[in-house]
Amino acid sequence: MPDIGTAVEQITVLKWLKQEGQPVKRGEPLCEIQTDKAAMELESVAQGVLLKQVVAENTEVTVGDVIAYVGEYGESVPQ
């Protein structure tokens, strides 16, 4: 979860906009998130395939937490 500059540490992943196995471009919306101020789309900083959604929808995370892995097809991700 990137520091999106809202000065808040706790951010909720509301909804995934990309499913596992789907290609993701850098800058494309990856998921909807909610801070204490607003709901917004989170842009992907990585380009490739969404290999794993690490957190379920409606889960609160802290800035810096791993929420997803984006890589190449067939690449393995940490369990």
Binding site: P2, D3, I4, G5, R26, E43, V45
Partner: peptide
């Protein structure tokens, strides 16, 4: 501007802009 935006999102550059 786009490059700078990603420097922020990647956590490399702090603050706002």
């Amino acid at each position: 501007e786009e490059r700078v935006k990603f420097l922020f999102l990647e956590g490399i550059m702090p603050g706002t802009i």
